[in-house]
Each structure stands twice: as C-alpha cells, then as structure tokens.
Amino acid sequence: MSTQEIRFSGFGGQGIIRCALITGKALSLYDDKFATMTQAFGPEARGSACSAQLVVSDERVLYPYITHPGILMALSQEAYEKYYGELPKGGILIVEEELVKLRGEHPDLRLLRVPATRYAEELGNRLFTNLVALGFFTAVTGVVTADAMKKALPGLVPDRFLKINIKAFDKGYEHGLQMVSKNGEAAP
C-alpha cells in the first residue's frame, strides 16, 4: 500500500467523525501506519451531509486532504448522492443498506451494502450504527486490522458502552467477512 484515501459520510449524529477518529487512531497507534484525519468544519458540518476524510500511508502523509478517495462509506442518502461520483473505477462503495436507495448497480465499483442501523437496533440502540458499519468496513477493505480498531475504542466511546460497541463492531465485522466469502473474494 502506498497511499489510501477514505471518506466517511452520513448525516450529523450518526457518529461519522467518530468513525474517522477510531480508524485513524487504530492505524497510526496500533497498525504502524501514518494517518491524517480532517473533517468538514464549515456550515456543511452543521446538519445535512457530514463527512470526515482520512489519508493513510506507509510514509508520512504530506497532503492532508483527500483528492482521489478510493473508499467511500455513505450512511445516508444525501451523503451517497453527494460523494459517490468521486470514486474511481474499482473504488469501494460501502452504503447503509436500508437508508440508501442506489441510483443503479454501480458495475464499475465494488459495491457493498450493510444493514448497520437494523443490526444496531437489534443490539438495543441505533447509536451503535457507526460501529457496525466500522466493523463491516474493517472486514471488507482490509485497510486496518480488527485488533487495532478494538484497541482504539477506549477513550473514543464512553467507558460504560465499550462492551456493547465492541459487540456492534463484531456484528458488522462478521457480516463483512461472510459477504467477502460469499462473493468469492479473497479475504483481505
């Protein structure tokens, strides 16, 4: 891997920024990578589509913003519509299965759908949607290790919800692994 650019997106309150923080911390503290995280701070960050960007590299990241994202995680319709056009051919598009109505099958992209909100609700609260999605992201992209992600959680989720967040992560992770094997793709 030289450099990988990732965009996490959704609507305000889904824990999108937190997704990027957890992934960035996991990569730079526990996976021995360089990661730089930036987020939208303008009026667009107050409601509507919310987005965080992560640049990951084996070497020091020089340019802190994403210019050619290879992975997009979109947890809302608006985020999907706003950002999927950025992806190059072969790019990874992860969407929330029940919140995002696709505008076609995206044959040029590696499209992966996860019912993150439903799984989170089964665990008791839709607040865990982001962790389910992150588990799924970890399984299907192979950008970051599951071990590093779990290590990164303390301090970024409230202590009393740590266990349930790990459960949510595992749920998404297993779903992702199953999908990867079902699609006959090599596990990352």
């Binding site: 960035g24 360089f34 990661a35 995280m37 802190p64």
Partner: peptide, 10 residues
C-alpha cells in the same frame, strides 16, 4: 493555521 490546528495525527 486552521489545517494543522484541526487535523488529527499521531
């Protein structure tokens, strides 16, 4: 500056 102030790194 804003970029360095707001960006997260190790």
């Amino acid at each position: 500056d804003e970029t360095v102030g707001h960006m997260h790194e190790k």
